[in-house]
């Protein structure tokens, strides 16, 4: 998301070159103290010794990472095996976030395409309609979703009253509810970049393909899709990354039964576990994964920019 904006600096000038340092200083200082330093402090904490019932002891320890990767049995003295517990939790988060991303793509792509092909006057209104719900508090949206989906909720009432189902669908407290919640939380992030890409797309290319007797769907697949790939890619990243670390959807819609990374981390600081170094280590691992994904996407973006001329 970030890399695109950075390289897009077309009207870059040097009018305020001399004042540059002073202009940037407040941002540097604020963000270094309030974001960079905390992340570094968290990295340090992940290598400290856990204090019983929360907190840390200032002694170097690899115990947090050991706990993450190695299973030493219930009592901690079996020969180490690969620990699947946390890998399972991470895998579940990736899987849930992936499912939510796919769902967003399946709904978001046609929507973005549809909007981008409206008349120039109508487009901003459609974009506006899509983005408004995003500005409603995530908590409120998740709660609303839960209210709508519950066994005695309006959705089940409606489906039963029109005779589509006989007994209520159990949606709340399932993995599907979490996916639906994530999908709902981040859908606009999928629509907007794809919309931007399709809007820039030169439809003469499609027309040329059609003139060569390509069917409409072939044109979509072979001509349009490759051209708007960067937008699709950006959309997927923007949905996938926040979904991975989400905490409200699994907690409220999933019944707090199956940990996702966000809830696992939260539990270390606010819940029963009280293992700060482990929570810091899990956060570091999540952060590393996200940064790798972002770097990969930035490279893809750069490649696409180059290919596009």
């Amino acid at each position: 998301m970030a890399a695109g904006a950075a390289s897009g600096g077309s009207a870059t000038t040097d009018t305020y070159k001399e004042a540059r340092t002073w202009l940037l200083l407040p941002a540097w200082v604020t963000l270094t103290i309030l974001v960079l330093a905390p992340v570094i402090m968290m990295l340090i904490y992940s290598f400290l010794t856990k204090e019983f019932r929360g907190g840390v002891i200032w002694e170097f320890s690899l115990a947090a990472y050991d706990q993450f990767f190695f299973d030493r049995g219930l009592f901690g003295d079996d020969p180490p095996k690969i620990e699947w517990t946390y890998i399972t939790i991470f895998w579940r988060s990736i899987w849930q976030a992936g499912a939510a991303t796919l769902l967003s793509l399946l709904i978001g792509f046609p929507t973005a395409y549809f909007i981008a092909t409206r008349s120039e006057n109508m487009r901003p209104i459609w974009v506006f309609l899509i983005t408004i719900p995003y500005w409603v508090n995530l908590l409120i949206r998740t709660v609303s979703m839960k209210f709508l989906l519950r066994d005695q909720g309006p959705l089940n009432d409606f489906l039963m009253s029109i005779g589509l189902i006989d007994s209520p669908l159990h949606i709340v407290n399932t993995n599907f509810a979490v996916q639906l919640g994530l999908f709902y939380s981040y859908l606009p992030f999928m629509v907007l970049p794809i919309y931007a890409a399709v809007e820039r797309y030169n439809f003469a290319l499609s027309e040329a393909a059609a003139d060569l007797y390509a069917s409409k769907w072939t044109t979509l697949r072979r001509v349009l899709l490759p051209a708007v790939k960067p937008g699709v890619f950006a959309g997927c990243i923007l949905v996938f990354v926040p979904s991975m670390g989400s905490f409200l959807a699994p907690d409220l819609l999933g019944g707090a039964k199956n940990f996702m990374i966000g809830s696992l981390i939260e539990e270390q600081f606010k819940g029963n576990a009280g293992n700060w170094p482990f929570g810091a280590a899990a956060s570091m691992i999540l952060l590393t994964m996200v940064l790798i994904i972002l770097m990969f996407s930035a490279r893809q973006q750069a490649k696409a920019d180059k290919a596009g001329g």
Binding site: R53, G54, G271, G274
Partner: peptide
């Protein structure tokens, strides 16, 4: 909502 949550928050 639990004794443990209170303890964790007081410790933090």
């Amino acid at each position: 909502d639990s004794n443990e949550a209170m303890l964790a928050s007081l410790k933090a």
